[in-house]
Write a protein that binds this DNA or RNA. Structure first.
Length: 356
DNA sequence: AATACGGGGAG
DNA sequence: CTCCCAGTATT
C-alpha cells in the first residue's frame, strides 16, 4: 500500500523524538550556527564536523567576528575538513551578510541562494532548521530514504527524478514542524536507512517500504556510475636552507586554494621522481636543487584521482624562489610549520618530519 | 548534463 | 588495502 504523508511524518517525528543525537548546534538553533554547520556538513559526516564546528564557534561566535577575520585564519580552522572553497565562500558570505543584510542571516530562498556556497539544499536547511519555515531539504540521506520508501527507480541525478524528490520532501513536511521533520528524515537516513546494511529490523517505516518489500532495499537508490579512478604519482620537495623550510601558498583558484605546503607536482609518464622534482622546482619556483633522499610516502584521494605522494629531502643549489605560480612563498622554521593552514596529506607529512 | 573539488568511514 | 559516500559552482 502507498504510505500516506501523514503516517510517514508521524512515525519519523516519533522516531526522532526518541533517537535524535545530542549535537552542539541543536541547543539553540541559531540561524548563524545552522548556516555554518550546514556548510561544514556538505559532503562531510556529522562525526567529522563536530570538533571543527566547536573550534570554529569558539573563535567566530558571530557573523561579525567571521566577517572581520582574515581568510588565512578561517582556512586555518578549516584545515583538514576538505573542500576548502567552502571556507572561502563562508567568509565571503559573512561579509555580504554584514554589508547587505545588517548582519542577520536572510531567510528568503532567493537571498540565501544569492550567497556563495549556498545552493538549494543548504538554503532549505537554513530556512527549515534555522528558522523553522516549511522548506524542504533533499540531500543524499533524503534521496535514499525516499527512493526506498516509494520504490523510486531511475538514476537519481536526472533532473526529472530530482524534481520528484523535492516535491515529495515538500509534501511530507507537517505544517509548522519542518525543523524537526527535516532533521528526522536526514538523521534517519544517516543512522537507520544507511547505504549498505540498513537496519530494517528496527525501522518504523518497514511495513510501508517498497524497497523492503522488494527483498533488497540496497538496490535503491540507483546511483550513477562513478568515473574511473586515475592513478597519479606526485612528488614533493622538503627543502631546508639555513634552518628553515620552503613553503608555498597555493593560489585561490587552485585545488587546496590558499593553503600552504611544500612545493609539489605530478610526475609525467616515464619521468623519474628526481627528474620530476628538478623540473617542477625549476618551472614553478625558478630554483635549482639537488635531490638528496626519500623521506616518506603518502597516499590520498582527490575526487577520482588516487595520488601516491613521495616526499624527498632536497638541497637548495641556486636561484631565489619566484612567486608567479603561487600566492606566496616563504621560508618557515620547523616549529612554525604547523601554524600554516595545510591540506591533510601535508599535515601528515609534517607530523612525520617532526617525529623523525 | 557533466565535471571538479578532499576527506573519512566501513569492510 | 578497497569500496563507498556526497552539495555547489562552473562549463
Amino acid at each position: 500500500m502507498i504510505p500516506s504523508a501523514r503516517e510517514i511524518s508521524t512515525r519519523l517525528l516519533e522516531w526522532f523524538r526518541v533517537h535524535q543525537r545530542s549535537l552542539p548546534w541543536r541547543r539553540d538553533y541559531d540561524p548563524y550556527h545552522i548556516w555554518v554547520v550546514e556548510i561544514m556538513l556538505q559532503q562531510t559526516q556529522v562525526r567529522t564536523v563536530i570538533p571543527y564546528y566547536q573550534r570554529f564557534m569558539e573563535r567566530f561566535p558571530t557573523v561579525q567576528a567571521l566577517a572581520e577575520a582574515s581568510l588565512d585564519e578561517v582556512l586555518q580552522l578549516w584545515a583538514g575538513l576538505g573542500y576548502y572553497r567552502r571556507a572561502r565562500y563562508l567568509h565571503q558570505s559573512a561579509q555580504q551578510i554584514i554589508a547587505k543584510h545588517g548582519g542577520r542571516i536572510p531567510h528568503s530562498l532567493r537571498e540565501l541562494m544569492a550567497l556563495p556556497g549556498i545552493g538549494r539544499y543548504t538554503a532549505g536547511a537554513i530556512r527549515s532548521i534555522g528558522f523553522n519555515l516549511d522548506a524542504p531539504v533533499v540531500d543524499g540521506n533524503v534521496i535514499r530514504v525516499l527512493a526506498r520508501l516509494f520504490g523510486i527507480e531511475g538514476d537519481v541525478k536526472q533532473s526529472r527524478i530530482q524534481k520528484r524528490f523535492w516535491a515529495l520532501a515538500e509534501d511530507l513536511i507537517p505544517s509548522g514542524r519542518a525543523r524537526e521533520f527535516n532533521q528526522a528524515l536526514m538523521e534517519f537516513g544517516a543512522t537507520v536507512c544507511t547505504p549498505p546494511h540498513p537496519q530494517c529490523d528496527s525501522c518504523p517505516l518497514r511495513d510501508s517500504c517498497r524497497a523492503y518489500a522488494s527483498g533488497d532495499p540496497t538496490q535503491y537508490p540507483q546511483m550513477p556510475r562513478r568515473p574511473e579512478t586515475i592513478m597519479l604519482r606526485d612528488v614533493t620537495a622538503v627543502i631546508m636552507h639555513r634552518g628553515s623550510y620552503l613553503l608555498v601558498q597555493r593560489t585561490e583558484e587552485d585545488r587546496w586554494g590558499g593553503l600552504w605546503e611544500f612545493p609539489r607536482g605530478t610526475c609525467e609518464k616515464d619521468e623519474s621522481d628526481g627528474e620530476a622534482l628538478v623540473r617542477i622546482l625549476r618551472q614553478k619556483l625558478g630554483l635549482e636543487v639537488r635531490v638528496e633522499s626519500h623521506l616518506h610516502t603518502l597516499r590520498h584521494t582527490v575526487t577520482h584521482h588516487r595520488i601516491t605522494l613521495h616526499a624527498y629531502r632536497c638541497q637548495w643549489v641556486s636561484g631565489e624562489p619566484q612567486t608567479h605560480t603561487y600566492s606566496a612563498v616563504i621560508w618557515c622554521p620547523l616549529e612554525s610549520l604547523a601554524d600554516y593552514a595545510a591540506p591533510a596529506p601535508q599535515v601528515r607529512l609534517v607530523k612525520h618530519l617532526l617525529g623523525s
